[in-house]
Design a protein around this nucleic acid. Structure first.
Lengths: 173, 173
DNA sequence: AGAGTGGCTTGCTTGGCGCAAGTTACAATC
DNA sequence: GATTGTAACTTGCGCCAAGCAAGCCACTCT
C-alpha cells in the first residue's frame, strides 16, 4: 500500500508535502539551490542511488526540476531547478533557521547573504500592509468564510478557548 | 532497515528534517498551531491511529509537543506545542505559501492574519541590515570559512560558473 | 444492560528505503 | 587491445514503515 495521497486534502500545506515531503526530497532541493546539478553532486549527501534516481524523476515530472543533456557522447544529463523549484527557497530557509536555533551539531552549510550588502538573510513572517516583521504571537488564524472548518468552529467553539479546556487552549496561531 | 539518520549530517536543514520530516509530522504540527489538542482532533486529517500515536510520542520525546492530562477519570491526555514546536510556524507558513502559489485544489485552510490589523501575513526572506524583503535572486550562498565545502568549492570551482558547464550553471542561491 | 467515548495497541499486508552489485556507453591509460 | 575509470543509471534483496481494521480499557450516559 502506498502513502496516502495528501494532495486530496483541501490544504495547500498538504499538497506541498505531497510533492516534496518524501524522505530526501527537500535535501535534494537544498542542494539544487546551492548549485548541485549532477547525479554525483546529489549523491554526496548520502542518498542511495535508486532513491535519488526515483526522486529526480518525480521532481522532473512535477516541474520542480528540469533534466537537460550536457554532453552527447556518452550521453550525460544534469538536473536544475525550475522557477517553481527555486521558489521553495523560503521553505528551505525556514527549515535552516529552525535547525540553527533549535538543534545542535556541526554546521558546514553555507550562509545565505544579501547579494548587495553581504549581510546575512533571515526568513520570517511579515504583514504586507504594516510592512513589518512579525512574531508568531502577532499572528492568528482566521477560517475562510463558508469553509467547513469555519462552520465547525462556529458550532464547536474551536478557536475561541472553550470552557472545558484548560487555560491557553486557543490555537497557537 | 530504518531511515538513514539525517541528524549526523553537518547541516541544520537535515537535522530539522530528521525531527519533523517524516510523513504526516508537519501536518500534525500544522494542526497544533491551529489549535488541535486531542488525539481525535489530529486524527481528523486522515492519519491512521497507530501512526498518529507514534508521531505524537516522538514529538513529545523531542520537546516539540507536550503531553498533558486534562481529565483524571478516565485518564485523558492532550498534546500542545511547546515554544520549540511553535517556532516551526515559519516553516508551515512557507509550505503554505508555496502550495497556494504553485498548486491548485480546494483550500479550506485558515488564512493567517496580523492580529492587530487583520491583514494577511506572508513569509519571506529579509535582510536585517537593509530591513527589506528580498527575492531569491537577491540572495547568494557563502560557504563558511574553514568548512570542507569551502575547500571543495575553491578547488573544484563550484559556485563560480565553471567553463565546462552550460550557461546559468551557478547556484540558484 | 447496552451503547458510546477517547486514547490507545495489535496484527496483517504492501511497499518504501538502504545497501550492494550489475549495466551501458564511452574515454583514458597501460 | 585489454584493462581501468567514470557517470548515470537499474536490479535484487531484506527489513521496516504506513495503511487498515479490529480490539482494548476505563469509564459515562441512556
Amino acid at each position: 500500500m502506498r502513502h496516502k495521497n495528501l494532495a486530496e486534502l483541501p490544504c495547500p500545506i498538504a499538497r506541498t508535502l505531497e510533492l516534496v515531503g518524501e524522505w530526501w526530497t527537500l535535501l535534494i532541493v537544498r542542494d539544487g539551490l546551492l548549485g548541485a546539478r549532477r547525479f554525483e553532486d546529489f549523491k554526496r549527501t548520502g542518498i542511495a542511488d535508486n532513491v535519488l534516481s526515483a526522486r529526480l524523476k518525480r521532481l522532473v515530472d512535477q516541474g520542480i526540476m528540469e533534466r537537460r543533456r550536457y554532453q552527447v557522447r556518452p550521453e550525460r544529463y544534469e538536473y536544475v531547478l525550475t522557477p517553481r523549484g527555486r521558489s521553495l527557497g523560503p521553505v528551505i530557509a525556514a527549515l535552516r533557521a529552525w535547525g540553527q536555533e533549535w538543534t545542535t551539531g556541526e554546521d558546514r552549510s553555507p550562509r545565505l547573504v544579501h547579494r548587495r550588502c553581504g549581510h546575512e538573510v533571515s526568513v520570517g513572517l511579515r504583514c504586507e500592509r504594516c510592512d513589518q516583521p512579525l512574531e508568531a504571537a502577532d499572528v492568528e488564524p482566521r477560517p475562510q468564510a463558508g469553509s467547513a472548518d469555519a462552520d465547525r468552529r462556529r458550532s464547536a467553539g474551536v478557536g475561541e478557548p472553550a470552557e472545558d479546556r484548560p487555560p491557553g487552549a486557543g490555537p497557537a496561531w
